[in-house]
Protein backbone atom coordinates (compact mmCIF):
# COMPACT_ATOMS: atom_id res chain seq x y z
CA UNK A 1 0.00 0.00 0.00
CA UNK A 2 2.67 2.46 1.06
CA UNK A 3 4.76 1.49 -1.88
CA UNK A 4 1.91 1.94 -4.31
CA UNK A 5 1.21 5.38 -2.89
CA UNK A 6 4.85 6.38 -3.19
CA UNK A 7 5.01 5.45 -6.83
CA UNK A 8 1.78 7.34 -7.46
CA UNK A 9 3.26 10.42 -5.83
CA UNK A 10 6.49 10.10 -7.75
CA UNK A 11 4.58 9.67 -10.97
CA UNK A 12 2.73 12.91 -10.28
CA UNK A 13 6.01 14.61 -9.44
CA UNK A 14 7.58 13.38 -12.69
CA UNK A 15 4.70 14.79 -14.69
CA UNK A 16 4.68 17.99 -12.66
CA UNK A 17 8.37 18.62 -13.30
CA UNK A 18 7.70 18.68 -17.03
CA UNK A 19 6.15 22.11 -16.63
CA UNK A 20 9.08 24.47 -16.23
CA UNK A 21 6.80 27.35 -15.29
CA UNK A 22 5.34 25.32 -12.46
CA UNK A 23 8.77 24.48 -11.08
CA UNK A 24 9.69 28.17 -11.21
CA UNK A 25 6.41 28.89 -9.42
CA UNK A 26 7.36 26.48 -6.66
CA UNK A 27 10.55 28.48 -6.14
CA UNK A 28 8.59 31.73 -6.17
CA UNK A 29 6.24 30.43 -3.49
CA UNK A 30 9.16 29.12 -1.44
CA UNK A 31 10.91 32.48 -1.73
CA UNK A 32 7.73 34.27 -0.66
CA UNK A 33 7.41 32.04 2.38
CA UNK A 34 11.02 32.74 3.36
CA UNK A 35 10.52 36.48 2.88
CA UNK A 36 7.33 36.46 4.91
CA UNK A 37 8.97 34.50 7.73
CA UNK A 38 12.08 36.67 7.77
CA UNK A 39 10.28 39.98 7.23
CA UNK A 40 11.47 41.48 10.55
CA UNK A 41 15.08 40.73 9.63
CA UNK A 42 14.80 42.02 6.08
CA UNK A 43 12.89 45.24 6.47
CA UNK A 44 13.05 46.96 9.79
CA UNK A 45 13.56 50.38 11.23
CA UNK A 46 15.65 48.94 14.05
CA UNK A 47 19.04 47.26 13.84
CA UNK A 48 19.21 43.48 13.71
CA UNK A 49 22.08 43.31 16.14
CA UNK A 50 23.51 46.08 18.28
CA UNK A 51 26.30 46.57 20.83
CA UNK A 52 25.98 49.57 22.98
CA UNK A 53 27.99 50.26 26.10
CA UNK A 54 29.29 46.69 26.06
CA UNK A 55 25.84 45.14 25.86
CA UNK A 56 24.53 43.08 22.97
CA UNK A 57 20.91 43.34 21.95
CA UNK A 58 18.54 42.58 19.10
CA UNK A 59 16.46 45.73 18.81
CA UNK A 60 14.20 44.28 16.11
CA UNK A 61 12.38 42.35 18.82
CA UNK A 62 12.14 45.32 21.15
CA UNK A 63 9.57 47.86 20.12
CA UNK A 64 10.88 50.26 22.78
CA UNK A 65 14.42 50.39 21.48
CA UNK A 66 15.82 53.18 19.35
CA UNK A 67 15.15 53.26 15.65
CA UNK A 68 17.83 53.61 13.00
CA UNK A 69 17.13 57.26 12.41
CA UNK A 70 17.40 57.95 16.12
CA UNK A 71 20.60 55.93 16.30
CA UNK A 72 22.06 57.95 13.44
CA UNK A 73 21.61 61.05 15.49
CA UNK A 74 23.25 59.51 18.55
CA UNK A 75 26.06 57.92 16.60
CA UNK A 76 27.68 61.23 15.74
CA UNK A 77 27.65 62.43 19.31
CA UNK A 78 28.34 59.17 21.12
CA UNK A 79 31.69 58.07 22.42
CA UNK A 80 32.14 55.42 19.81
CA UNK A 81 30.97 52.36 21.71
CA UNK A 82 28.03 51.94 19.42
CA UNK A 83 27.94 49.27 16.74
CA UNK A 84 25.01 47.80 14.88
CA UNK A 85 24.00 45.82 11.79
CA UNK A 86 21.32 47.34 9.60
CA UNK A 87 18.68 45.19 8.04
CA UNK A 88 18.97 45.19 4.21
CA UNK A 89 15.93 47.45 4.00
CA UNK A 90 16.34 49.94 6.82
CA UNK A 91 12.67 50.89 7.01
CA UNK A 92 9.74 49.33 8.76
CA UNK A 93 6.33 49.21 7.07
CA UNK A 94 5.26 52.13 9.24
CA UNK A 95 8.46 54.16 9.20
CA UNK A 96 7.43 57.59 8.06
CA UNK A 97 10.30 59.12 6.10
CA UNK A 98 8.92 62.63 5.93
CA UNK A 99 11.89 63.86 3.89
CA UNK A 100 10.89 61.74 0.95
CA UNK A 101 7.12 61.64 0.67
CA UNK A 102 5.82 60.22 -2.65
CA UNK A 103 9.37 59.56 -3.77
CA UNK A 104 9.70 57.61 -7.00
CA UNK A 105 12.10 54.66 -6.93
CA UNK A 106 15.54 55.85 -5.80
CA UNK A 107 18.65 54.30 -4.31
CA UNK A 108 17.36 55.02 -0.85
CA UNK A 109 13.84 53.80 -1.49
CA UNK A 110 14.18 51.10 -4.09
CA UNK A 111 10.54 51.14 -5.10
CA UNK A 112 9.68 54.61 -3.86
CA UNK A 113 7.51 55.75 -0.99
CA UNK A 114 3.82 56.38 -0.51
CA UNK A 115 1.93 59.51 0.39
CA UNK A 116 2.98 59.23 4.02
CA UNK A 117 6.63 58.60 3.24
CA UNK A 118 6.49 54.87 3.99
CA UNK A 119 8.90 52.69 2.06
CA UNK A 120 7.17 50.54 -0.56
CA UNK A 121 9.63 47.62 -0.43
CA UNK A 122 9.22 47.36 3.30
CA UNK A 123 5.41 47.43 3.06
CA UNK A 124 5.57 44.83 0.31
CA UNK A 125 7.66 42.50 2.44
CA UNK A 126 5.48 42.86 5.49
CA UNK A 127 2.35 42.68 3.38
CA UNK A 128 3.39 39.24 2.14
CA UNK A 129 2.81 37.95 5.67
CA UNK A 130 -0.85 38.94 5.51
CA UNK A 131 -1.40 37.58 2.02
CA UNK A 132 0.29 34.25 2.61
CA UNK A 133 -1.16 33.63 6.04
CA UNK A 134 -4.68 34.50 4.93
CA UNK A 135 -4.28 32.32 1.85
CA UNK A 136 -2.95 29.32 3.71
CA UNK A 137 -5.07 29.48 6.86
CA UNK A 138 -8.32 30.26 5.06
CA UNK A 139 -7.88 27.39 2.62
CA UNK A 140 -6.68 25.18 5.46
CA UNK A 141 -10.02 25.77 7.15
CA UNK A 142 -11.89 25.24 3.90
CA UNK A 143 -9.99 22.03 3.20
CA UNK A 144 -10.66 20.57 6.64
CA UNK A 145 -14.38 21.32 6.46
CA UNK A 146 -14.54 20.17 2.86
CA UNK A 147 -12.71 16.90 3.47
CA UNK A 148 -14.78 16.00 6.52
CA UNK A 149 -18.11 16.82 4.87
CA UNK A 150 -17.06 15.19 1.62
CA UNK A 151 -16.00 11.99 3.37
CA UNK A 152 -19.18 11.85 5.44
CA UNK A 153 -21.39 12.40 2.42
CA UNK A 154 -19.51 10.06 0.11
CA UNK A 155 -18.87 7.27 2.56
CA UNK A 156 -22.14 7.06 4.43
CA UNK A 157 -24.44 8.18 1.63
CA UNK A 158 -28.13 8.22 2.49
CA UNK A 159 -29.19 10.92 4.89
CA UNK A 160 -25.72 12.29 5.50
CA UNK A 161 -25.22 12.68 1.78
CA UNK A 162 -28.67 14.20 1.35
CA UNK A 163 -28.12 16.84 4.02
CA UNK A 164 -24.55 17.70 3.04
CA UNK A 165 -25.38 17.89 -0.65
CA UNK A 166 -28.24 20.24 0.12
CA UNK A 167 -25.92 22.33 2.26
CA UNK A 168 -23.40 22.54 -0.57
CA UNK A 169 -26.16 23.57 -2.95
CA UNK A 170 -27.33 26.27 -0.56
CA UNK A 171 -23.82 27.61 -0.04
CA UNK A 172 -23.14 27.81 -3.76
CA UNK A 173 -26.30 29.86 -4.22
CA UNK A 174 -24.84 32.83 -2.38
CA UNK A 175 -22.50 35.13 -4.23
CA UNK A 176 -19.37 34.33 -2.23
CA UNK A 177 -17.73 37.73 -2.19
CA UNK A 178 -20.93 39.48 -1.15
CA UNK A 179 -21.46 36.90 1.56
CA UNK A 180 -17.94 37.46 2.86
CA UNK A 181 -18.49 41.21 2.89
CA UNK A 182 -21.83 40.84 4.66
CA UNK A 183 -20.50 38.57 7.36
CA UNK A 184 -17.48 40.80 7.85
CA UNK A 185 -19.80 43.78 8.15
CA UNK A 186 -21.57 42.01 10.98
CA UNK A 187 -18.61 40.52 12.83
CA UNK A 188 -16.15 43.31 12.08
CA UNK A 189 -13.08 43.03 9.88
CA UNK A 190 -9.93 41.56 11.38
CA UNK A 191 -7.32 39.24 9.95
CA UNK A 192 -8.72 36.36 12.00
CA UNK A 193 -12.28 36.99 10.86
CA UNK A 194 -11.20 37.27 7.25
CA UNK A 195 -9.46 33.90 7.39
CA UNK A 196 -12.45 32.23 9.02
CA UNK A 197 -15.01 33.77 6.71
CA UNK A 198 -13.10 32.93 3.54
CA UNK A 199 -12.59 29.45 4.96
CA UNK A 200 -16.21 28.74 5.78
CA UNK A 201 -17.48 30.07 2.48
CA UNK A 202 -14.90 28.23 0.39
CA UNK A 203 -15.22 24.56 1.33
CA UNK A 204 -17.95 23.44 -1.06
CA UNK A 205 -15.69 22.71 -4.02
CA UNK A 206 -13.41 20.48 -1.98
CA UNK A 207 -16.34 18.73 -0.33
CA UNK A 208 -17.79 17.92 -3.75
CA UNK A 209 -14.46 16.61 -4.95
CA UNK A 210 -13.89 14.38 -1.95
CA UNK A 211 -17.45 13.12 -2.10
CA UNK A 212 -17.04 12.23 -5.76
CA UNK A 213 -13.72 10.46 -5.20
CA UNK A 214 -15.23 8.65 -2.26
CA UNK A 215 -18.09 7.32 -4.36
CA UNK A 216 -15.61 6.23 -7.01
CA UNK A 217 -13.27 4.50 -4.57
CA UNK A 218 -15.95 3.00 -2.35
CA UNK A 219 -16.90 0.41 -4.93
CA UNK A 220 -13.36 -0.84 -5.41
CA UNK A 221 -12.05 -4.15 -4.23
CA UNK A 222 -9.60 -3.06 -1.59
CA UNK A 223 -12.23 -1.02 0.24
CA UNK A 224 -14.51 -4.03 0.27
CA UNK A 225 -11.64 -6.05 1.57
CA UNK A 226 -11.09 -3.56 4.37
CA UNK A 227 -14.79 -3.57 5.22
CA UNK A 228 -14.92 -7.34 5.24
CA UNK A 229 -11.86 -7.56 7.45
CA UNK A 230 -13.74 -5.49 9.99
CA UNK A 231 -11.92 -2.15 9.83
CA UNK A 232 -13.74 0.74 11.44
CA UNK A 233 -15.41 3.38 9.25
CA UNK A 234 -13.06 6.11 10.40
CA UNK A 235 -10.03 4.01 9.63
CA UNK A 236 -11.31 3.02 6.20
CA UNK A 237 -11.99 6.62 5.29
CA UNK A 238 -8.64 7.81 6.61
CA UNK A 239 -6.40 5.03 5.38
CA UNK A 240 -8.05 3.82 2.22
CA UNK A 241 -10.25 6.51 0.76
CA UNK A 242 -8.62 9.81 1.63
CA UNK A 243 -5.24 9.06 0.02
CA UNK A 244 -6.99 8.64 -3.32
CA UNK A 245 -8.82 11.93 -2.98
CA UNK A 246 -5.72 13.78 -1.87
CA UNK A 247 -4.26 14.65 -5.27
CA UNK A 248 -7.38 16.38 -6.63
CA UNK A 249 -7.80 18.12 -3.27
CA UNK A 250 -4.26 19.41 -3.58
CA UNK A 251 -5.10 20.91 -6.97
CA UNK A 252 -8.15 22.55 -5.48
CA UNK A 253 -6.13 23.84 -2.53
CA UNK A 254 -3.54 25.38 -4.82
CA UNK A 255 -6.15 27.29 -6.80
CA UNK A 256 -7.95 28.04 -3.56
CA UNK A 257 -4.93 29.72 -1.98
CA UNK A 258 -4.70 31.94 -5.06
CA UNK A 259 -8.32 32.98 -4.85
CA UNK A 260 -8.13 33.50 -1.08
CA UNK A 261 -5.16 35.82 -1.54
CA UNK A 262 -7.14 37.65 -4.19
CA UNK A 263 -10.18 37.87 -1.93
CA UNK A 264 -8.10 39.29 0.93
CA UNK A 265 -6.53 41.85 -1.39
CA UNK A 266 -9.96 42.84 -2.70
CA UNK A 267 -11.32 43.16 0.84
CA UNK A 268 -8.38 45.31 1.91
CA UNK A 269 -8.80 47.31 -1.27
CA UNK A 270 -12.40 48.05 -0.28
CA UNK A 271 -11.31 48.97 3.23
CA UNK A 272 -12.69 45.75 4.72
CA UNK A 273 -9.39 44.13 5.36
CA UNK A 274 -6.84 44.23 8.09
CA UNK A 275 -6.58 47.37 10.23
CA UNK A 276 -5.10 50.32 8.38
CA UNK A 277 -1.95 50.26 10.50
CA UNK A 278 -0.98 46.82 9.10
CA UNK A 279 0.60 46.81 5.68
CA UNK A 280 -1.20 44.64 3.17
CA UNK A 281 -1.01 44.52 -0.60
CA UNK A 282 -4.68 45.28 -1.05
CA UNK A 283 -4.65 48.30 1.23
CA UNK A 284 -1.52 49.59 -0.49
CA UNK A 285 -3.45 49.51 -3.76
CA UNK A 286 -6.41 51.15 -2.14
CA UNK A 287 -4.27 54.01 -0.89
CA UNK A 288 -2.51 54.25 -4.24
CA UNK A 289 -5.78 55.28 -5.87
CA UNK A 290 -5.35 58.75 -4.36
CA UNK A 291 -2.08 59.29 -6.20
CA UNK A 292 -2.79 57.42 -9.42
CA UNK A 293 -1.86 60.36 -11.60
CA UNK A 294 1.48 61.16 -9.97
CA UNK A 295 2.60 57.93 -8.32
CA UNK A 296 2.51 55.12 -10.86
CA UNK A 297 4.80 52.96 -8.75
CA UNK A 298 2.26 52.98 -5.93
CA UNK A 299 -0.24 51.11 -8.10
CA UNK A 300 2.16 49.05 -10.15
CA UNK A 301 4.23 47.52 -7.35
CA UNK A 302 1.64 46.01 -4.99
CA UNK A 303 -0.54 44.98 -7.93
CA UNK A 304 2.39 43.12 -9.46
CA UNK A 305 3.09 41.43 -6.15
CA UNK A 306 -0.50 40.18 -5.93
CA UNK A 307 -0.39 39.09 -9.54
CA UNK A 308 2.90 37.19 -9.28
CA UNK A 309 1.81 35.38 -6.13
CA UNK A 310 -1.59 34.39 -7.52
CA UNK A 311 -0.04 33.38 -10.82
CA UNK A 312 2.48 31.16 -9.05
CA UNK A 313 -0.24 29.30 -7.13
CA UNK A 314 -2.38 29.00 -10.24
CA UNK A 315 0.50 27.62 -12.29
CA UNK A 316 1.24 25.07 -9.59
CA UNK A 317 -2.42 24.12 -9.47
CA UNK A 318 -2.63 23.75 -13.22
CA UNK A 319 0.54 21.69 -13.55
CA UNK A 320 -0.65 19.48 -10.71
CA UNK A 321 -4.01 19.01 -12.38
CA UNK A 322 -2.38 18.07 -15.66
CA UNK A 323 -0.09 15.69 -13.80
CA UNK A 324 -2.87 13.76 -12.12
CA UNK A 325 -5.32 13.81 -15.00
CA UNK A 326 -4.50 11.02 -17.42
CA UNK A 327 -7.03 12.38 -19.89
CA UNK A 328 -4.96 15.46 -20.52
CA UNK A 329 -2.17 13.28 -21.82
CA UNK A 330 -2.41 12.76 -25.50
Amino acid sequence: MVNERQTYASMIWRQFKKSRLAVVSLFVVAALVVIALLAPFIANERPILMRHAGEWSMPIFDKASLTLSELDVIKDSSSGDLWFINPPIPFGPTTYDLDSVLSPPTKKHLLGTDGDGRDIVSQLIWGSRISLSVGVVAIGIAAIIGIIFGLLAGYFGGWADMIISRLIEIMTCFPTFFLILTVLAFVGPSIFNIMVVIGITGWTGIARLVRGECLKVRGRQFVHAAVVSGARDGRIMWRHILPHALAPVLVSVSFGVASAILAEAALSFLGFGVPASTASWGSMLSEAQEYMDIGWWLTLVPGSAIFVTIMAYNLIGEALRDAIDPNMKT
Binding site: L21, L285, M292, D293, T299, I306, F307, M311
Partner: peptide, 24 residues
Protein backbone atom coordinates in the same frame (compact mmCIF):
# COMPACT_ATOMS: atom_id res chain seq x y z
CA UNK B 1 -0.42 30.48 -20.19
CA UNK B 2 -1.87 33.73 -21.54
CA UNK B 3 -5.30 32.90 -20.17
CA UNK B 4 -3.80 31.94 -16.83
CA UNK B 5 -2.10 35.33 -16.75
CA UNK B 6 -5.47 36.97 -17.37
CA UNK B 7 -7.04 34.81 -14.70
CA UNK B 8 -4.36 35.84 -12.21
CA UNK B 9 -4.57 39.58 -12.86
CA UNK B 10 -6.62 41.10 -10.02
CA UNK B 11 -9.56 42.84 -11.67
CA UNK B 12 -9.49 45.82 -9.34
CA UNK B 13 -5.85 46.43 -10.15
CA UNK B 14 -6.49 46.21 -13.87
CA UNK B 15 -9.53 48.44 -13.43
CA UNK B 16 -7.64 51.29 -11.81
CA UNK B 17 -4.78 50.99 -14.29
CA UNK B 18 -7.17 51.04 -17.25
CA UNK B 19 -8.87 54.06 -15.73
CA UNK B 20 -5.54 55.89 -15.52
CA UNK B 21 -4.53 54.94 -19.02
CA UNK B 22 -7.79 55.38 -20.93
CA UNK B 23 -9.93 57.68 -18.91
CA UNK B 24 -8.13 59.97 -16.53
Amino acid sequence: VVLLVFYSLPSFWVAIMLMVIFGS
